[in-house]
Write a protein that binds this DNA or RNA. Structure first.
Length: 340
DNA sequence: AAGCTGACCAACCGCTATGGA
DNA sequence: TTCCATAGCGGTTGGTCAGCT
């Protein structure tokens, strides 16, 4: 079966568009609409294939396209939506008026993805990257890290903290989405929760978020019921979503959220390690400097930077423990560099 | 000044989905 | 139901430009 060639047909121009071509296309569409893209090039006098015309129009010439740098809010929205939707660029673009999927995709690939990687996150899962720890068994054997093990396996602890923080971030974000909005902050939309704050997050997308959270059920302790979610807030999503059939969400740590008072103040989150009575760290989420609503990113960066600082033997991390000096020795070892 | 490198982004490629005959 | 044309989407490529050596 032959796919009809697009621009390979004889004589059709490819490559960058000239201002004259742009003008022809815009003039034609303004006068006649695009109608059939296949027929458009002939009718408008363009020596291009219809697909090329369509892309040029939708990605560049459309009058409602917003150009220029992405704002902080847009960046945050992209991060939030990507953590839920993945590489569904058109779905993400539908929440950012004036931005095209192509533009968002480019922005992601050239900026946001790198940012996440630099901060130690897997840009696809928005979770801490574990690959940097994959050589740990070698390193432990290499450096005889009894001291580190005595320190309650700091690196494992840090890794666990990262994972927990990522999971909590998602829960926090879900909780944020479902919070009832104070009347003053609400707009005219019928929904009464913060789903409005990222445009119109669809029911399906909210459901996907819930499902992604439901996958975190490996360890005991917390459940959805521990979230500060008034039953009425769930109505804002969709009555047809069978919440009662969702698996009970299991989070591998305790966490407490003081009752939130509308949107004015971000909830403070204190992390408790499983089975322990005191907080495992002075770790509050979100920190005063992190943007709100949070994506999966902000809280974890604190721990990530702490892990990155492990090589500095004299530093005391936000974790509150002195970094074992053995890390310093380890990093000095030439074999470490071979592995790394 | 020339060459190199990396960032950026418009455009293309190829696949899937959709709708009409 | 099948086939085909078209639209839409996400991944990739390649040209341009700025900064650095």
């Amino acid at each position: 079966m032959g796919r009809s060639p697009c621009c390979d047909e004889s004589g059709l121009k490819k490559g960058p568009w000239t201002p004259e071509e742009d003008q022809k296309l815009v003039k034609y569409i303004q006068k006649h609409g695009h109608g059939s893209w296949r027929a458009l090039p002939k009718l408008s006098g363009l020596n291009r294939c219809g697909k090329s015309c369509r892309l040029r129009w939708t990605n560049y010439l459309r009058p409602d396209i917003k150009r220029g740098k992405f704002s902080q809010e847009e960046e945050q929205t992209i991060l939030n939506l990507h953590s839920v939707l993945g590489n569904k660029w058109s779905a993400i673009a539908s929440h950012l008026p004036g931005r095209t999927d192509n533009e968002i995709k480019n922005f992601w690939n050239t900026h946001l993805k790198k940012k996440l990687i630099q901060m130690g996150f897997d840009p696809m899962t928005h979770r801490p990257r574990t690959d940097i720890f994959s050589s740990l068994p070698h390193l432990i054997a290499l450096a005889n890290l009894k001291e580190l093990i005595d320190h309650h396996s700091l690196e494992e602890h840090a890794l666990r903290l990262q994972t927990e923080a990522a999971q909590m971030a998602k829960l926090q974000y879900l909780q944020y989405l479902l919070q009832p909005q104070p009347p003053a902050a609400s707009n005219t939309a019928t929904s009464s929760n913060n789903l409005n704050n990222i445009g119109t997050l669809s029911d399906i997308e909210a459901f996907n978020l819930l499902n992604s959270l439901a996958s975190l059920k490996d360890s005991p302790v917390s459940s959805l019921s521990q979230l500060d979610l008034p039953a009425s807030s769930l109505q804002g999503i969709n009555d047809s979503i069978p919440f009662s059939h969702l698996p009970d969400l299991q989070i591998p740590c305790n966490y407490q959220t003081p009752p939130t008072k509308g949107m004015a103040q971000a909830p403070e989150l204190t992390v408790f390690s499983q089975g322990e009575n005191s907080p495992i760290s002075p770790f509050h989420f979100p920190s005063s400097s992190t943007p709100f609503p949070p994506s999966a990113v902000p809280p974890v960066t604190q721990i990530s930077s702490m892990v990155n600082n492990l090589g500095d033997a004299s530093s005391t991390s936000s974790y509150g423990e002195e970094v074992p000096s053995v890390w310093h020795d380890l990093l000095e070892d030439p074999m470490f560099h071979d592995i790394a």
